[in-house]
């Protein structure tokens, strides 16, 4: 059933342009995401990614790994911030599978080992076409 490559991994990097584009798409123009000068004066010291931009990267990998699947539910936690221009690693692992339903654990980690996103989601896989 879940014959995709699990665990699957993706190494990626986000840029300030990505933050700006997600701000336009989401309407969330909070300066902590888009204003480097403002952000330099905060405890983070620089701009941080929107949490839902990180979720976007997760969702994209799910769609590429299980095309045509439906996302039924998603839990997300954002323990540490993700910064522009830093290497990030996304790992998707299987928690359980029953019938055409798949429960997955998703984690985004920074190079220094801090976790930017942990999540659990449930996918419904498409009915297999007769082959």
């Amino acid at each position: 059933m879940s014959d995709a490559n699990i665990p699957c991994e993706q190494n990626f990097m986000l840029t300030q342009d990505d933050f700006d584009q997600f701000a336009r798409l989401s309407g969330d123009h909070n300066p902590i995401h888009v204003d480097p000068e403002f952000s330099a004066r905060t405890s983070f010291g620089r701009t941080v990614s929107h949490g839902m931009l990180l979720f976007s990267v997760v969702r994209s990998l799910l769609a590429q790994t299980w095309p045509g699947s439906t996302l039924n539910r998603q839990n997300l936690m954002f323990p540490s911030p993700a910064y522009a221009g830093e290497a990030l690693e996304l790992v998707v692992e299987q928690q359980s599978a029953e019938g055409n339903r798949l429960v997955l654990k998703t984690t985004i980690t920074r190079a220094d080992g801090e976790t930017c996103l942990t999540g659990e989601c449930e996918l419904t896989l498409p009915e297999k076409e007769a082959s």
Binding site: S26, G27, M52, F55, R59, A63
Partner: peptide
């Protein structure tokens, strides 16, 4: 394009729905 997904997406991706909540919470 932003998340380098070379697929036609039917409907609105869930992270854009989630982004509405984060927009409300943050702003």
């Amino acid at each position: 394009e932003l998340c380098q997904l070379d697929q036609d997406w039917p409907g609105v991706p869930e992270p854009l729905i989630a982004g509405l909540f984060s927009c409300l919470l943050g702003e």
